[in-house]
Design a protein around this nucleic acid. Sequence first.
DNA 1: ATTCAGGTGCGAG
DNA 2: CTCGCACCTGAA
Length: 301
Amino acid sequence: MATPAGVRIDPAGGRASLPVRPPYDLQRTLRCGQAFGWEVDGTGATGLISGRIVRVQQTSDAIIVEGLSEEPGLRNLRRYLGLDEPLADIERALAEDRVLRRVLPQSSGTALMRQDPWECLVSFITSAFNNIPKIELSLKHLARWFGTHVAGGIWTFPAPEQLAAARLWDLRRCALGYRAPYVREAARLVASGKVDLDKLDRTETGEARRILLALPGVGEKVADCMLLFAYGRGDAFPVDVWVKRAVERWYFRGRPKTEHQIREFAQRRFGSLAGYAQQHLFLSARTDARLSPRSSRRLRR
DNA sequence: ATTCAGGTGCGAG
DNA sequence: CTCGCACCTGAA
């Protein structure tokens, strides 16, 4: 297959340059909470993709890649990072909505990624009733104790087989708490082939959702995260506590709604862009002091 | 010491 | 089917 236009490759240096269009924002995309595996700093980010340690950083019109300089790895990275998402069109459409128009400036450029379904599954099982630092801690421990060593201080995310064989007691050492049996059982279902995560890529969304919901530790929210972050189903709308607060506050004048009602509302209102709407509402809610639990408790009185 | 955190599973009405 | 409740555990 031909190299896409605009791509510059320097095989000897292990470097490449992938073109991107505004408003794509690498930092926002990696920090927005959809992916956990990347070490993001002021200038770029480091992570593992296609079994390689890769550093990426954004310039005015490109993503500079170090550590990966050949296809199909680069194509894989493009897809993973959502570099080809038509963000300008998407955000223009979302800005028709009065709420999104207001919050978009602070989250513009966030692209939906295409993560590995298995890693995504474990990440979001772990995320349930948990906080972000501890989720990251658990995932880091999982890689350290069950993954494969790549190079100094870097381990791959463990394969289903690697976790399926784990002792519960060892899994618990990863601070997974009561989620440990969920993770191991999910690993066994995937490793045994009883659940084929790759096949879901070609499965109709509703059916894929039903299959995901049958996995232990996977409820509506986690299933929707997987549909959105791993399977590219743009109409998925994961309803977590932040999105729930934001939608109730900004679309229903603070009237409480069930998660089901919120999901239905979002799909009707945003359709195939519901996933992007969710990202922007989520990011906005997290940075809006008025939506913090402390604040809303005060207002409730 | 208490409280909180990106939900889910389970039993009851 | 909807509702309420318990829940591992590190960090503030």
